[in-house]
């Protein structure tokens, strides 16, 4: 399986039934009393592929399902439908025990460096935990302390930090601990869910530089979840744009930033503030807000906010289509470019 991608996701769906007691779900209308089963459709048919050493970013606004994609791939959630192939093996239906060896190949870094470290564990135990889970022999376990010292040094912490507790560290240092923990089992893929959005800008730059260095050094692949387009532009090789659980555009970074095709991508890029004065950039202003994932619009997910939307968008859901240079876009404007005027 040497030619298999580090990660390949095909037609991933993730739906969450909303719980609540019977009384919460009872509805009374003209036809009588019904029991509702509301379902949040968080991810609707997402496909993506990441090669060894590649960084793919998923961008989108809150509620677009990007974090759910990350957690489903990490198998924190069990997908409703679809394939998640890690090094060619579909792990979508794996149980806990089957996942254990897979977790040595795939690790996660979380957004909140305060909540993602156990406050009652020392740094050395935090970093050692995944490694000890994976170590079957006494000999392997004996090598753990040396490995931890190595890892801490690599992420820019020193040996005396190993005996301290998380509260003794700043946000940036804690994120370094989280990275060391993820690296401990030498994974090929790291899923990073907003790893720098809780950090100050000068610290954010340090962590982004560290993550890039580690990619070059270990040939790591990242699935990098972020809402910050300038961070994504800096770190990613390719970018997927998500809206309401759908992938609406997918392209190499330079293609996406130079020629965004989907109206939502174009609006996102034009809304991002910049310290450089704006050149005569296209400006697409979005009105309104994202609809609820409990009640998706018919046809195109974006039509309720899209300045171009016409009747076809309400009746027919656009499929992702290839527009050249490996760029795929889910928008009817590709078929009817004459409508692309504001």
């Amino acid at each position: 399986m040497t030619d298999a991608a580090v990660l390949e996701v095909r037609d991933l769906h993730m739906q969450f039934p909303i719980g609540g007691g019977i009384l919460d779900r009872l509805r009374l209308d003209r036809r009588g009393i019904r029991l509702e089963n509301p379902i949040v459709k968080a991810v609707n048919g997402v496909s993506l592929r990441i090669e060894r050493g590649e960084i793919m970013a998923l961008v989108g606004e809150s509620g677009c399902g990007k974090s759910t994609v990350a957690k489903t791939i990490a198998r924190i959630y069990k997908p409703t439908r679809g394939e998640v192939r890690i090094d060619g093996t579909d792990v979508a239906d794996f149980g806990y025990a089957q996942m254990l060896p897979v977790r040595a190949r795939m690790q996660m870094i979380f957004q909140d460096p305060y909540a993602s470290l156990n406050p009652r564990q020392r740094v050395r135990d935090i970093v050692a935990e995944p490694l000890l889970e994976q170590s079957k022999t006494a000999q392997m376990r004996a090598a753990v302390p040396d490995r931890i010292a190595q890892l801490l040094a690599r992420v820019g912490l020193n040996a005396e930090h190993a005996g301290r507790y998380p509260h003794q560290f700043s946000g940036g240092q804690r994120q370094r601990i989280g990275i060391a923990r993820a690296l401990s089992v030498t994974p090929g893929l790291i899923i990073a869910d907003e790893p720098v959005s809780a950090l100050d800008v000068s610290i954010q730059a340090q962590i982004l530089n560290l993550m890039k260095d580690l990619r070059d050094e270990f040939g790591l692949a990242y699935l990098f979840i972020s809402h910050d387009l300038s961070v994504v532009h800096h770190i990613a090789d390719k970018v997927g744009v998500m809206y309401l659980g759908f992938m609406v555009e997918n392209a190499a970074r330079d293609v996406l930033f130079a020629r965004p095709r989907h109206p939502y991508t174009r609006a996102l890029l034009s809304a991002a503030p910049s310290i450089k004065p704006k050149r005569d950039k296209e400006e697409i202003l979005l009105t309104g807000e994202v609809p609820s994932a409990l009640d998706l619009p018919s046809g195109c997910c974006f039509r309720t906010r899209c300045p171009f939307a016409w009747d076809r968008c309400a009746s027919e859901q656009p499929a992702l289509q290839d527009v050249g240079d490996g760029q795929t876009v889910a928008c009817h404007l590709i078929d009817e470019p004459e409508r692309d005027i504001l």
Partner: peptide, 21 residues
């Protein structure tokens, strides 16, 4: 501070970070 912000109009391999905290 300004150099720490990645900018979409140029591509740097590394950001010019401020060391320390």
């Amino acid at each position: 501070l300004i150099d720490s912000i990645p900018d979409t109009s140029e591509r740097l391999d590394r950001l010019n970070q401020i060391p320390g905290s």
